[in-house]
């Protein structure tokens, strides 16, 4: 695939294999740059996100992981002063083309946030919200139940489905947010540190869930937790911060290495990746 030749610095043998197996790219990211006002956050990121795979994004705090995945559903449009340059193709279509409606983009590309953010409505209405937005209101009850089952929450809430979502525990709230995102059958699920507010048990539940979801969804997950990335993902992108006060360029996030998770965690090509995953990062 010729797209690989456009980013020689992230070309990795295992990825070549993946691509040669005719994996389809859901996203093709090319020279993506994002900034807040005059401050760059990420620069010249190029990679492909593959269909029905879990891609983990790891890297030190502030390297632009959140900024990066918010580019995929145009969430950065909502941040005052945020600017995105370069290209992202979603199944061949330029996401940032003039006539692309960000609202339509977000209907296909769901997102789960770092902090559980259920609406102050009932459990049922939380899940039904996206369905109503997308006018998928036929068999609403069934769809809500299905989504809650998919998110491994149904058994815990089926008897209190009309109760306020705020009465759930943090882990349940996060699974509710996942159910909410799944209800509308998105093509892609973006998850920004979905477990950072959760205890190990709730985290395990969500990780198990991701394994099941992989059959139907393409998932991009940001995580601070190296073990988690190793456990759940097929591919891993390592971001780091480059440039600093000393080099008179303001620091910005760059993609250091992108490869299969196995490769990244066993034999990374880049010294910086190795330092980071072995905990020697400064």
């Amino acid at each position: 695939m010729n797209v690989m030749t456009q980013r020689p610095n992230v070309l990795a043998p295992d990825l070549e294999d993946l691509v040669n197996e005719h994996e389809t790219s859901v996203f093709e990211v090319r020279d993506l740059t994002a900034s807040y006002g005059a401050t760059p956050a990420i620069e010249n990121v190029s990679l492909d996100i593959f269909d029905k795979k879990i891609t983990a994004v790891i890297g030190p705090s502030g390297c632009g992981k959140s900024t990066f995945i918010r580019c995929f559903n145009r969430m950065n449009d909502l941040v005052a002063g945020a600017h995105v340059g370069g290209k992202i193709f979603y199944r061949g279509e330029d996401l940032y083309a003039e006539d692309v409606d960000a609202v339509e983009v977000r209907r296909r590309i769901g997102m789960v946030f770092q902090q559980p953010n259920p609406f102050p409505k009932s459990i049922y209405d939380n899940v039904a919200f996206g369905l109503r937005v997308n006018r998928m209101t036929d068999h609403l009850d069934d769809r809500v139940e299905k989504a809650l089952q998919d998110a491994a929450l149904w058994d815990e809430v089926k008897r209190k489905i009309k109760d306020p979502a705020s009465a759930l525990s943090g882990g349940q709230q996060q699974r509710l947010c996942i159910a909410r995102a799944l209800a509308t059958n998105p093509d892609v699920l973006l998850m920004d540190e979905p477990c950072s507010a959760l205890d190990p048990i709730a985290t395990t539940k969500i990780e198990d869930l991701m394994h099941e979801l992989k059959a139907d969804y393409t998932i991009v997950i940001v995580t601070h937790n190296m073990q988690q990335a190793a456990r759940v993902s097929d591919l891993t992108a390592f971001f780091s911060v480059e440039g600093s006060a000393e080099t008179d360029r303001s620091p910005r996030g760059v993609l250091v290495e992108y490869d299969t998770t196995e490769q990244i965690f066993t034999a990374p090509n880049d010294r910086r990746t190795e330092d980071y995953i072995t905990g020697r990062f400064g």
Partner: peptide
Amino acid sequence: VPTSLRHGAYGLGASKLR
């Protein structure tokens, strides 16, 4: 009203009016 709630709704493809 916390911004995170708005983002949650926008993330589901809700329009500004909704």
